[in-house]
Amino acid sequence: MQRTAKHLRSGLTAYLMIAPMVILLGIFVFWPLIYSIYLSMHRISFYKDPAFVGFDFYKYVLTDPNFWDTMLTGLKYALFVVPTGIVIALIVATFLKNLNGRPASIMKTTVYVPTVVSSVVASIIFLFIYQDEGLANWFMGFLGVEAVNWLNSPGLALPAIAVPGVWLGLGISTLILLAAMHDIPANYYEAAALDGASAWQRMRYITLPNLKNVLLYLFVTGFTLAIQEFQLPLIMTNGGPVNATTTPNLFIFRSFRDNTEYATSFSLAASLLLFVALGLISLLIFKLVKSDKALDS
């Protein structure tokens, strides 16, 4: 009896401890989500009573070729940014791991700097770099190549805005990988060295398997964030040329700004469908890259 009372007391304490978070989640996540689902089934005007239309807006979004085009654009952008960013971060982290003392501190700070740069500032910096007379075209001229229309060419604009995307994410990915690398026991490498393993073999058979869970984390968070990229295309290209850089969030934002009765519910339905799509993509990555316990656990 006394044991039960103690158990209930400790249970009550636990519920009280998590109550603030549950209440906050309820107010700021669950209620808005439920209300969004409710609103997405109505044609909304702020001057007339909303009219129930069922799943009409979901049908409109799913049959809108622009929605699918923007999803594809988001995926392509993520494919440009995430693997490239992780590979570069892995190389930089490997390099940093072998540095010691002051040079290591200076390099870590340098690599982390882009992370604290606002993406608005990064967009403006890269806008200047990509201009006709900008640094990118100066470099092309140096190589003897004709100036390139970076941001107004439908085939080049998306890779061009992916470059600042990689740059902005590089610092945090590098530091996470570096921390994970430091957690790999040194005796694994010593044993491999005794067996005559090359640098590539040590990377392939020791470093990468031990980084699997961290890489999974970087892939999942990187993909979901990259597909939702909004500021870079908004500032650098405004979604152009010919919608080549219109990511899903930019598409939803533009739909929301439209001042017809149709627009608000359409953008809500598109947002909720994007939410589902991102969940499915994360699930797919989890399935493809199965997480394991650490090898030494």
Binding site: N152, S153, P154, G240, P241, V242, N243, D258, N259, T260, Y262
Partner: peptide
């Protein structure tokens, strides 16, 4: 009329200009 109608025509002109 709704802006989407104007945007459709604007996008058509841009597509022709940029060769898509």
């Amino acid at each position: 009329y709704p802006w989407d109608v104007s945007l459709a025509m604007g996008t058509a002109i841009e597509s022709a200009m940029k060769g898509t």
